[in-house]
Simulated assay, not measured.
Amino acid sequence: MHVCGWHQGLAAGAFNAYRIGRRRVVFRESLTGSTITDRPEEVTAHVHACEHLRARAASPAASLDLIDSARSALCLELRNSWSG
């Protein structure tokens, strides 16, 4: 299913999920501060967002190809703008 709009991982902001022994915690950062939570429903939501991002992400090779294509296009654009 395709859903338009922001990806759920972006809405959560920057976060890291940790396992400390049997306990899972999430460290969240925002514009105005940070929080640590071990509430199961919040940890689960963050872990699912991360898993979803990983599942949808391009492979490392495809990511490098994309970066190289963007670099080549930018370099060509810069060369053309310098030549006049």
Score class of each variant (00 low, 15 high):
His2Phe: 13
Ile36Val: 11
Arg23Tyr: 07
His48Val: 10
Asp38Asn: 11
His48Asn: 12
Ala12Trp: 01
Asp65Ala: 04
Gly21Cys: 10
Tyr18Val: 13
Tyr18Lys: 06
His48Ala: 15
Arg39Asn: 11
Ser83Trp: 02
Ser34Phe: 07
Glu77Met: 12
Asn16Gln: 04
Pro60Arg: 06
Asn80Met: 12
Thr37Phe: 01
Cys75Tyr: 06
Ser34Asp: 10
Arg23Leu: 13
Ser83Leu: 06
His52Tyr: 01
Ala14Ile: 11
Ala14Lys: 06
Thr37Pro: 01
Asn80Ser: 14
Pro60Ile: 10
Leu66Gly: 14
Arg19Thr: 10
His48Cys: 07
Glu51Leu: 02
Val47Glu: 00
Arg23Trp: 05
Asp65Asn: 05
Cys50His: 04
Phe15Ser: 02
Gly5Leu: 04
Asp68Thr: 15
Glu42Met: 11
Phe15Pro: 00
Arg54Thr: 12
Cys50Gln: 08
Glu42Thr: 12
Ala58Asp: 03
Ala57Ser: 09
Glu42Tyr: 07
His7Val: 15
Glu51Arg: 02
Trp82Ser: 12
Ala12Asp: 05
Ala49Asn: 01
Ser30Gly: 07
Ala57Tyr: 03
Leu53Gln: 05
Thr44Lys: 11
His48Met: 09
Ser59Asp: 01
Ser63Trp: 03
Leu64Lys: 09
His2Leu: 14
Ser69Ala: 14
